[in-house]
Simulated scan of single mutants.
Amino acid sequence: MQPTEKDLENIFPACKSLVSRQTWSALVSRMDMNPDPEKFPTVISSLSHELELPEYLNELADLEIALYSCLQLQDQVPSSVHKKMINPSLKMLELHWKGLDKVLDGAGDQKIHPASQPELMLVWFDPDSGRSRAQPADQRTLTALKIVNEDQPMGSTALEYKVNLAELHRAVDQSAARGLILAPRTRLGRDPEIFQPHDKSFERFMHPRVFTLQWHITQACDLNCKHCYDRSSRSPLSLESAYYVLDELEKFCIRNNVRAKVTFTGGNPLLYPHFDQLYLEAVRRGFPVNILGNPASRQRLEQLLAIQTPSMYQVSLEGLRQHNDFVRQPGYFDRVMEFLPLLRELGISSQVMLTLTRDNMDQVLPLGEHLRDMT
């Protein structure tokens, strides 16, 4: 069936916006000999010199026909899946012009000039927006697609290639949010009779995709803080029992279609006798790890970095130097001040936590100013 001029306008709106009405009519008339819209880029190439068309116009037409083709594949994109999978409508275009996606977004804007250099473009039908989308294929997105396509275990991949596990998860999550990857819906949900979303941005808290296990793995601590709520003496958890906890967490994630992260705390979690083995096992199972502890030496941190960089290392301060050291121990404030730059130097994200009381309320803002740009 021969496409009408209206059909071509609907399929190639960006191309039409970049040429004059007379030029567009000339291109449409040549389609009498090539009724298939997929032949339009070829028609553009054949008339490029004669009509003085932009050099990149035929590839822009390739991109627009890909967007149109993906839209025709929307019925092949399932509304729900049981495990992560690549969106079946996904196409990859090897282009010779960089920035054609910007031309699409700013159709008709003569100030946008693509560069003559190769670019791999991803095109797919996004089920959430109900339209086709295009974006350049950066390394982060390609890694996410490779992991899902090959069903690679996240933890083992992060350990083998010495890459950050949390970053791998974020890459996959971001591709899933764009519809490049289809993921099963989480089974966790808050009771809507208790938690009412005030706006659309709140809805992500109704059905969380990530479950955090905050795990007090030891009572051992190198401090004796005045406000500590649990100084009871308990034997350390055996490594076998700790692995069982990870087993149960893994099963919980599978049942509920969520991923987990583990936050080790205590006491001081680094004083747990089997910490490095447990840390490694948590990462191997695909769980990013946070540490809520006390300042540690460079050597101790480097031992952890040899396994995997913690997603975050949190220390606590109870106010400015005098009040904090009264609550925790003399010299602790300065220990933290020396520790935070070390974390930054080693590429470890950091946070500082405070237990709010009547005695330190007026120190929160001054402490925040003191810590500015340190975490």
Score class of each variant (00 low, 15 high):
P13R: 01
F12E: 02
G106E: 14
D36E: 14
S29Y: 05
Y56C: 03
A14K: 06
K84E: 15
K98D: 15
M31N: 04
L90G: 11
M85I: 13
T42C: 05
P13T: 05
W97T: 02
W24A: 09
L63A: 06
N10E: 12
V103C: 08
F40E: 04
E94F: 13
L104V: 11
V43E: 07
S20Q: 05
A66G: 01
S80D: 09
L51D: 02
S29N: 10
V19E: 03
P78D: 04
W24T: 09
L18A: 09
P13W: 03
L67A: 00
Q110M: 10
E94S: 14
E52G: 03
F12Y: 15
H49V: 10
C15T: 13
S80K: 11
V43G: 06
M33T: 13
I86Y: 00
H96R: 14
L93V: 03
H96E: 15
L73G: 00
A26N: 09
E55D: 15
E94V: 00
S45R: 13
A61D: 07
K84D: 10
L95W: 10
K39W: 11
S17H: 10
F40I: 03
L27C: 10
P13F: 05
L51N: 01
L57N: 06
E38K: 13
G106F: 14
S45D: 12
L53C: 06
L47F: 07
K39Y: 11
L73A: 13
M31R: 03
I86R: 00
S79R: 14
Y68P: 00
E59F: 09
K91A: 05
K91M: 15
C15G: 03
A107L: 05
R21C: 06
A26V: 04
L47D: 01
L47R: 07
P88N: 07
S48R: 12
L100H: 04
M31P: 09
V77T: 06
S29I: 11
E50Y: 05
V77C: 06
S69R: 15
S29H: 11
K83H: 13
R30D: 07
E52S: 15
E59R: 04
L73V: 02
P13E: 02
L104I: 14
P78W: 08
S80M: 09
S79H: 14
K84S: 09
M31G: 05
N34F: 15
L67H: 00
K16G: 04
P41S: 10
F12Q: 01
D36T: 07
Q74R: 15
I65S: 08
P54Q: 00
D105N: 11
H49W: 13
K102E: 14
G106D: 11
E94M: 11
P35C: 10
A66V: 08
P35Y: 11
L63H: 08
I11W: 01
V19C: 06
L60A: 06
A14W: 08
N34Q: 12
